[in-house]
Amino acid sequence: MIEKTLVLLKPDAVERNLIGHILVEYERNGLSVLELKLMKASSTLAEQHYIEHKGKPFFDRLVAYLTRSPLVALVLEGENAISRVRALNGTTDPADSQDNTIRALYGKSMSENTVHASDSTESAEREREIWFG
């Protein structure tokens, strides 16, 4: 099934000039970039993105991280894009990610894990609306 999913190349990826390296991995694996923008996220935007974590002790750290410097928001499309992107990204903690996943290669820590990807069709639609309107 052809799907669209939202991906964020988080501030630590942009700060370390990894945009091209990460995009190559997605494209090399048969995913197409439909939309892409480099931007500095506002606190309001970051709070909307992480709304399911509001009230948790780490919420403010998530918002501060996402807003500290520019990030890249993109929409990818392809066969089973949601599950494929999540597999390419690896687990949330880079130390636990399978070899050669984006987080294993480029993630710095659990809190600076380089990329975000939607985890379901519903999340992908909600997140695309947040980042691309």
Rank of each mutant, 00 (worst) to 15 (best):
P94S: 04
V115Q: 07
E15D: 15
R28M: 04
A41Q: 09
E27G: 10
L18G: 08
L9Y: 01
S97H: 01
A117C: 09
V72H: 01
S83N: 14
D93V: 14
M39Y: 06
N89V: 08
R128N: 04
T44I: 02
G90Y: 00
Y65S: 11
Y65F: 14
R61M: 11
L38N: 01
H53D: 08
E77G: 06
R126I: 13
R103E: 12
K56M: 08
F132S: 13
A73L: 03
K37Y: 00
L34A: 01
N89R: 02
E25K: 14
M39K: 00
R128A: 12
E77P: 05
R86F: 01
L66Y: 05
R68H: 11
A46L: 03
G78W: 00
A41H: 00
D96E: 15
V24E: 13
L74Q: 06
A73I: 07
Q98Y: 01
E25S: 07
E112T: 10
A41L: 14
L8Q: 10
Q48L: 05
M39W: 07
A87C: 05
R128E: 03
I51G: 00
D12M: 10
P57Q: 07
I19M: 11
L105D: 07
K108W: 03
A104E: 11
T67H: 06
F58G: 07
S69L: 07
L9D: 11
L9P: 03
L18H: 04
L105V: 04
L18S: 09
L71F: 02
T101F: 01
E77D: 07
Y26H: 04
L18Y: 01
T5Y: 02
G133H: 04
G90A: 06
S97G: 02
A13H: 06
G107Q: 06
W131D: 12
D99T: 05
V33L: 01
E129R: 14
E79N: 13
H116D: 11
R86P: 08
L74F: 00
M110V: 15
V85N: 10
R61A: 14
T114N: 05
F59C: 06
K37V: 09
I82Q: 06
P94H: 04
T121Q: 13
T91E: 08
L38K: 05
S109C: 12
P57T: 10
D12K: 10
P57Y: 05
N80H: 15
